[in-house]
Amino acid sequence: MSVDIQAIHERIRQESAFVDKIVNEVSKVIVGQKYMIDRLLIGLLANGHILLEGVPGLAKTLAVRTLSATIQTKFQRIQFTPDLLPADLIGTLVYDQHDGKFTTKKGPIFANLILADEINRAPAKVQSALLEAMQERQVTIGETTYPLDDPFLVLATQNPIEQEGTYPLPEAQVDRFMLKLSIGYPSREEELEILRRMTKKTIPKPAPVVTPQDIIKAREVVLDVYMDEKIEHYIVDLVLATREPRRYGLESLEDLIQYGASPRATIYLTLASKAHAFLRRRGYVTPEDVKAVAMDVLRHRVIPTFEAEAEEKTSEDIVRTILNNVETP
C-alpha cells in the first residue's frame, strides 16, 4: 500500500504556518518552557484538555494567558476557590420581575479557551460541573441545553505541594484531560533571561495572529496524518502493558499497578502522536512521536498500588519502565 504522503505533507505545510506565528508571539513573553508550549499546541490541535501541574511561579498561568492572547478568540480565566458554586461556572436562571419570567445568564464557561486556575481548590461539585462540560461539550441550564463553542479547550492548573484545603481531582475525572503536564524549573540561562525581561518598565504583549478557523482547519489535517499499522500496534502495546505488564515481560510491575490506562488513553495517545508529527511538519507518525507524548498521556492514567507508594514508585516511574522495555516497531 502506498499512501500519498506528499499530499499530506503539502497540506501540513499550508495549514501549519500559524504554528510559527504562535510560537514567536508566545516567546516574546515566556522564556524557555518549550515543552509546555509544545504540549499546549498539541492540546489545541488534538482537541484535548490539559492539566498543568507545577509549583507556583513557573509561568503556567502566564503561558495559557499568552497563548490565548495569540488567538482571536474568547478567553476566560476562572480562579477556583473553596466557595465557588457550579452556577458561578456554567450560569444560572435569573428571575425578571418586570415580565415575571426566568432569563438565562450564561457563565464564564461559554468561551473558547478556559483557564481553570488551581482547579483543586474548588469543591467536588464545581469540579464535576466543569469536567462534565469538558466531556459533553455542552451545558444544561434549567431545562435548556446549550452547546459550547468550538474550539473549546480547558487548561487547568494545580499546585502539587499545597494539599491543605484542597480537593484532589478523582481519577475518573483526571482521565478526561488528554495530557497532564509536569512543569519543571527553568535552566540557569532561562532564569537570567526572565530576570532581564520581566523587570523592565514595559513587559512585551503578544499580538493575536490566529483565528479559530485556522485551528479548526489544522485539526482536520491532524486527523489525516498517516499512522501505519505497526504504530497502531505499538500504541496498543504501551497501553496494554499498563494493564497486563506480565505479558510484556514486566513482572516487576505486576504488584505496582492498581489500575492501568483506559481505552481513552489509546485514543488520546493516537491523537497526540499525530499532533506531534504535525508540529514537526511530518505527514506520518513515527515511534518517536508516540514516545514523546506517552508520558504526558499516561502519567495520570496509571494508578499505583499501596506497595508502589511504599516503595516510593510513582506512576511516572511505572510509565518510564514500560517505555524503556516495550519493543518499538
Binding site: 500500500m1 502506498s2 504522503i5 501505519d228 505497526k230 506520518y284 507518525v285 513515527t286 516497531p329
Partner: peptide, 10 residues
C-alpha cells in the same frame, strides 16, 4: 527504513 516502514513509502 523508518520512512518506508511508517511513512507509507513503497
Amino acid at each position: 527504513c523508518d520512512q518506508v516502514r511508517f511513512g507509507g513509502d513503497a
